[in-house]
């Protein structure tokens, strides 16, 4: 494999609160090439904070430290705010969970995509407009012209999420971080959105970090999966070998889901071993 796109070593995210220090991410290390990496965990496992820390989006009073945090050879910890801003949205972008909250409600979808593009590329308005329309078409909007001039509240959840993907991919990033991109969507719609995401990612040879709580979904979508528990990676495995997971937490997560194929009753529940969190 060539040089990894993203290298993370011993990433820690701490929040200094009045009640003491909470360590949300406790020493996460991984490398990412141009592949699809899934990060799975339950709420509070630190999966979203990991994604945000890479982009420098940890909310105050959070503190991020890492032995190594490099993107394409650039040290993200040393880099100036200005360069980080250029990278963010330009070469690394992020798709958030709920389009309802992450799109600007008082700007049309087209304007938002143009804004994203012009923030990173020197382009005339007409050029940016063409790019935006092409992007809306790439995410399979049936009528790009119409969607272009709509406001976020005028589109459905699935369309909003596709618009957000269009906005994030218009700058042709090398790395896309998707934080629960389909959790707010219906099953059939989310499959459609994932299919579009899948196509675009493989077409453009991007790296993808897919953050989700849904083990089944992640394992069917990604090449490699990191399983997080209490701020640590407890297991890293190839997605297709998920059935051979060794860690009891991963096994427990797999088993506690009801399935259509077999009827287990009562469902096995997870007995959390305090030693997992050590």
């Amino acid at each position: 494999m060539t040089k990894p796109l993203l290298e993370v070593e011993d990433l820690r995210v701490r929040f200094h609160l009045r009640t003491g220090t909470v360590e949300a991410v406790r020493g996460v290390s991984f490398q990412l090439g141009r592949e699809r990496l899934g990060i799975v965990g339950e709420s509070g496992s630190g999966k979203s904070q990991t994604g945000r820390a890479i982009l420098g989006l940890t909310p105050p009073p959070g503190e991020v430290t890492a032995k190594r945090l490099t993107f394409d050879g650039i040290d993200l910890q040393k880099v100036s705010k200005r360069t980080l801003r250029e990278l963010r949205g330009g070469r690394i972008s992020m798709v958030m969970q709920d389009p309802k909250y992450s799109l600007n409600p008082v700007m049309t979808i087209g304007e938002q995509i143009i804004e994203a593009y012009q923030a990173h590329a020197k382009a005339s308005r007409a050029e940016a407009r063409d790019r935006a329309l092409a992007m809306l078409e790439a995410v399979k909007m049936r009528d790009p012209q119409r969607v272009f001039s709509l406001y976020p509240h005028e589109v459905s959840g699935g369309m909003g999420q596709r618009a957000m993907i269009a906005m994030m991919l218009v700058t042709d990033p090398d790395l896309l971080i998707a934080d629960e991109p389909t959790s707010a969507l219906d099953v059939t719609v989310s499959m459609e959105v994932l299919r579009i995401l899948d196509e675009l990612v493989s077409e453009r040879g991007m790296g993808l970090i897919f953050i989700s709580h849904d083990l089944k979904l992640v394992s069917s979508f990604c090449d490699r999966v990191l399983v997080m528990y209490a701020g640590r990676v407890v297991e890293e495995l190839e997605a297709r070998n998920l059935r051979e997971a060794k860690h009891p937490y991963t096994q427990g997560l797999m088993r506690c889901l009801p399935t259509l194929t077999n009827d287990v009753r009562p469902l096995p529940t997870l007995n959390r071993d305090p030693s997992w969190a050590l």
Partner: peptide, 21 residues
């Protein structure tokens, strides 16, 4: 059927799920 398929997780097959939906 399309709901059942969607509940099994993501498939790379260009299924006609979207069409059905």
């Amino acid at each position: 059927q399309s709901l059942i398929q969607a509940s099994q997780g993501f498939t790379r097959k260009p299924a006609d799920l979207a069409a059905a939906a």
